[in-house]
Amino acid sequence: MSGRRHEGVDTADVAASVHRLAVLLQAGLTPPRAWSHLARSGDETAGAVSRAFQQGRSVADVLRSRGEAWAQIGIAWQVATTVGAPLAESLRGLADALRDAHQARDDVRTALAEPQTTARLISWLPLAALGLGAALGFDPLAALTQPIGVVCLVLGGALMIITSRWTAALVARAQPDHALPGLGADVVAIALSGGVSLDRAIAVSEAAAGSPTDAETLATLDLSRSAGVPAIDLLRADAAAQRQESRTAGRLRAATLSTRLLLPLGVCTLPAFLLLGVGPMLLSVLTATPLTL
């Protein structure tokens, strides 16, 4: 089953499932039994994992197929089971990280709600102007059938389409990333909690993630080596800092969106308003039959 089908899974739901799984594991249940109990509560992913245990398939592969949030859990699961790290502790930490990331995305979505609504309302101004002209006694539709009116209609419609796509692009750039900030540091910390060396932890993490270790995590590991201090706490602190930085950046993007939305308003929406609203009314006046004295 492809991951695209599960892209809409709520991160908060994943965090709740992972937290329940961690509690079951901490209570002494084996991973197959813990996933089986979770599946009985109606969790679809837990059901898929339980079937994977019965069929001898990779749990990490099943989790990766369930969407972005579960895929990140799959990376951590593969690392923890490879090095023998404590699963309950590792999953509990990731559940907290997912909740924090979900809260950050909620904060950004809340901040984006007002400018998005304003942009949608303003984008309908040109069409509202047509209705206003008809209400005032003009005949804008008849005016738009004339050659000049057709030009106004085509240009105004094109500007409205550009406004819609431009606004959507600005809003999309302001949306937070679905990736879990600090996951690289968290995964290496999980590997180290299994008692392996730094080099082994890096190798296992990169194999699970399918990508090189990020520069920030490597810098933290270098600090641990040079200072002679345990790397696990440093990595977890670094992951927490990355999530806080991501939350702040998301709020800043949302705050600047209101200003950026003025660009399509001035460049496209107002000209479209003139072409579709004011233009037909002027044409109606100019083409009206002159009054006889």
Rank of each mutant, 00 (worst) to 15 (best):
G8A: 15
D10M: 15
D13N: 01
D13K: 13
A15N: 10
A16P: 07
V18F: 00
H19T: 08
L21D: 08
L21M: 10
A27N: 12
G28S: 07
G28H: 12
T30V: 07
T30W: 13
R33N: 10
W35G: 03
R40D: 13
S41L: 10
G47K: 09
A48Y: 04
S50P: 00
A52E: 05
A52K: 04
A52L: 12
F53N: 00
S58F: 13
D61K: 08
D61S: 05
V62F: 06
L63S: 03
L63V: 04
R66H: 08
A69Q: 11
Q72C: 02
Q72D: 01
I73R: 04
G74V: 11
G74H: 06
A76V: 14
V79A: 09
A80P: 12
T81L: 13
T81P: 07
T82V: 05
A85R: 05
E89D: 13
R92S: 02
L98W: 01
D100V: 14
D100M: 08
A101G: 00
R105N: 04
A113I: 01
E114Y: 14
E114T: 14
P115R: 15
S123V: 00
W124V: 10
W124Q: 11
L125H: 01
L127D: 13
A129S: 01
A129L: 10
L130E: 09
L132V: 15
A135S: 01
F138E: 06
D139T: 15
T145W: 00
Q146Y: 03
Q146N: 04
G149R: 04
G149H: 01
G149I: 00
L155I: 08
G157D: 09
A158K: 09
M160E: 02
M160S: 11
W166C: 11
T167G: 07
V171I: 12
A172P: 03
Q175S: 07
Q175W: 06
H178Q: 11
G182I: 04
G182V: 11
L183D: 02
G184R: 06
G184V: 00
A185H: 05
I190A: 09
I190E: 00
A191M: 06
L192C: 08
G194W: 12
G194L: 02
G195K: 07
L198Y: 11
L198V: 03
A201C: 01
S205E: 02
P212M: 06
T213D: 10
T213Y: 01
A215Y: 01
T217A: 07
T217Y: 05
L218P: 05
L218R: 15
L218V: 10
A219W: 06
A219Q: 13
A219M: 15
A219L: 15
L221P: 09
D222S: 09
S224A: 10
R225P: 00
R225E: 04
R225A: 02
S226D: 15
G228Q: 14
A231E: 01
R236T: 06
A239Y: 09
A240L: 12
A240Y: 05
R243E: 12
E245N: 03
S246R: 03
S246N: 07
R247T: 09
A249N: 04
A249F: 03
A249Q: 10
G250M: 11
L252H: 11
A254G: 08
T256Y: 13
R260L: 04
L262R: 13
L263C: 02
L265Q: 00
V267T: 13
T269A: 15
T269R: 13
L270G: 07
L270H: 00
L270F: 02
A272S: 14
F273S: 14
G277D: 06
V278P: 06
P280C: 07
L282W: 14
T287Q: 05
L293N: 05
